[in-house]
């Protein structure tokens, strides 16, 4: 049985499809990348799994199973309990995710597993683990005094501190400097190895995917375009769209790449082939 199994999930926004028959499997101890351009539906997929879809977006078909339990069949309250215990989100926008009126320490202590002996110490240990300098002081601070990068790191700490089974990370390192990004990615992978959580890693950045993911799902227009092991997707992308995404990715090791968008003709062909505009 897989940790997460999304079966043929479709979402609709007042009649227009947002996700179309998306299948995704994430095993425990796996980092599953989800990539694609803006509007591909990556965040929507994450929100559907977490049960936090916007009001007007509804599940039109499919199932989401966590360790075999069909989340969509659960009573909302039972689902929330499930969510709180087993899943955590590292959101795309760190500012909106933190409560401006409570200290970092209070917000982190809240997600620690019940019965944590010394919550204050544990919070500082987590802040230190995500390389926040002056962890003791930061713990006592309110979110607004922290820089974007610091907030992002605090949220990574919060996600893992709750000891979840599945973490959904939506662009977790986009706001960070390269050196910090590398540290934090390394840390995410170490934490993930130690705790055995499954991780859904949503990003635009194929460079990051190539370094951290085990498997990759490429999405476009609410559909899954290609699913493959990371090494295959990076070295032998099968679908023309995956190839185009890779070709559009700038690289630090040689010049001239990343100056052409994914060709419009290709997008038009994909839309035509999918048969629904």
């Amino acid at each position: 049985m897989s940790l997460l199994q999304v079966d043929s999930l479709s979402l609709g926004l007042r009649g227009t499809p947002v996700l179309r028959e998306v299948n995704l499997i994430i095993e425990a101890s796996e980092i599953a990348g989800v990539v694609g351009e803006s509007g591909a539906g990556k965040s929507m997929l994450g929100k559907a799994i977490l049960g936090v879809l916007p009001r007007d977006v509804t599940v039109t078909a499919g199932a989401i199973r966590l360790n075999g339990t069909d989340l969509l069949a659960l009573h909302p309250r039972a689902r929330r309990a499930f969510l709180k215990r087993d899943m955590a989100l590292i959101p795309q926008d760190p500012l909106s995710a933190l409560n401006p009126c409570r200290t970092i320490s209070a917000q982190l202590a809240e997600v620690l597993p019940k019965g944590t002996a010394d919550a204050k110490m544990e919070v500082i240990r987590w802040l230190d683990a995500v390389r926040i300098p002056s962890a003791t002081k930061v713990a006592k601070s309110f979110p607004h005094v922290l820089s974007g990068g610091m907030r992002q790191r605090a949220l990574i700490a919060a996600a893992f501190a709750s000891r979840p089974k599945l973490v959904i990370a939506d662009e977790p390192t986009t706001a960070l400097d390269v050196t910090v990004q590398k540290d934090v990615l390394h840390l995410i992978r170490e934490l993930q190895r130690e705790t055995g959580v499954g991780l859904m890693f949503v990003t635009h950045d194929l460079c990051v995917v190539a370094k951290i993911c085990h498997s990759v799902t490429v999405m476009h227009g609410g559909r899954v375009i290609e699913q493959a092991a990371c090494t295959d997707l990076i070295n032998r992308p099968a679908h023309a769209y995956s190839q185009a995404l890779l070709a559009a990715t700038p690289r630090p090791d040689h010049a001239g790449q990343g100056l052409e968008p994914v060709p419009t003709a290709l997008i038009e062909r994909m839309i035509a082939e999918a048969g629904d505009g």
Partner: peptide, 9 residues
């Protein structure tokens, strides 16, 4: 620290 799109765990 700058990653390139090459598979390297």
């Amino acid at each position: 620290a700058a990653p390139s799109p090459e598979y390297d765990p």
